[in-house]
Amino acid sequence: METLFPDIHNLVLQQQSTIADLWTPQGWKFVFRRYLNDWEIPRVTEIFRSIDQFSGLEIGRDRLQWLGNSKGIFKVGAVYKKLNHPNLQLLKWPWKHIWKAKIPYKVSCFVWLLTKEAVLTQDNLMKRGITLCSRCFFCGKTAETVNHLFIQCKVTDQLWNLFLRRKSISWSMPGRISEALFSWEEAGTQAKNRSNWRIVPATIWWTI
């Protein structure tokens, strides 16, 4: 929770508790230091959704289980296939939009940080130990994450729509930066000038 949901982790009183301390036959027992705000409730719901497959505690020795296959057995060959899957590499690392686009080097570095979700948004500052009440600087309705601020926020969406409507382009915005770059590359296969097409996402995000 501390890594994935730092804003909610700061509100939980049992920060040093184990899984056994937090789990009861009736479900999870989180105790918050104050009442949750409206914009924090969806984050808590997201936490419960991510752990809803937890089936409870079993008596026995701890054991390692690899999630790469259904049997939980680690195999080097399976890891190699996952790491070298061409579509997976393209989806997770859209390098053409970062290093081949005709943009200043500092902008390329900025887009690289965006792809890594390492830009210092409020949620990343909280991961570094800075206490904040994470809310989007633009809309103020949800936590300020990289993907929200640069893709999902309604203010960012207005910037994208301004360009898309002007060029009469129909495009659906994905949920993550890396997916957006990959999707934009796919959408621009018929563009007359691919170089100009590739600089559009970086231009909009640098403007933000």
Rank of each mutant, 00 (worst) to 15 (best):
T18W: 04
W93D: 14
C139T: 01
G175S: 15
V79D: 04
T121P: 10
P42F: 02
D62C: 06
W171L: 11
S108G: 05
D123N: 11
I47K: 05
S172R: 09
V155N: 10
Q26H: 09
K116P: 07
W171R: 06
H97E: 07
S183D: 09
A187C: 13
Q65D: 07
A78L: 09
Q190S: 15
M173L: 13
H97L: 10
R61Q: 13
W206M: 05
C109E: 05
Q16Y: 02
S170R: 15
F54D: 09
T18R: 12
I47W: 06
A78M: 13
T115C: 15
R43D: 11
I130D: 01
K92G: 11
W184E: 06
D123T: 11
I103A: 00
C133G: 06
F5A: 14
K106F: 00
F182V: 09
H9G: 01
V119D: 02
I169Y: 12
W112D: 02
N161P: 04
E58W: 11
E144I: 00
S178I: 12
N124Q: 04
A143H: 04
R33H: 06
W197Y: 03
M126F: 01
G72Q: 06
N147F: 00
D123F: 04
L132V: 01
K167Q: 13
P174Q: 07
F74Y: 13
L22C: 04
V44D: 05
F54I: 10
Q152P: 02
T156H: 04
F48V: 06
S50G: 09
R165A: 10
S183C: 12
D157A: 15
L67K: 15
C136K: 00
P104H: 01
R61F: 11
L67S: 13
Q26I: 07
A78E: 15
K154S: 11
T45G: 10
F182I: 08
F182Y: 14
K192F: 09
T145L: 00
T142R: 03
D7M: 07
A101I: 06
E144P: 00
S178P: 07
P201A: 06
G188Q: 02
T145F: 00
C136I: 00
Q65H: 09
R166P: 05
R43S: 10
T121K: 08
A78S: 14
E117G: 08
D38C: 07
M1A: 12
I98S: 03
I177T: 08
I98D: 03
D21V: 02
K192R: 13
V31N: 12
P25I: 08
F30D: 05
F5Y: 15
M1T: 10
P174F: 07
S17I: 00
A78T: 14
F163H: 12
L159N: 14
S178N: 15
R49M: 08
G175W: 11
L91K: 13
W197N: 06
I51K: 07
W28D: 07
L132F: 02
F163C: 11
K154E: 14
R61G: 07
G140R: 00
L149R: 01
F30H: 05
Q89P: 11
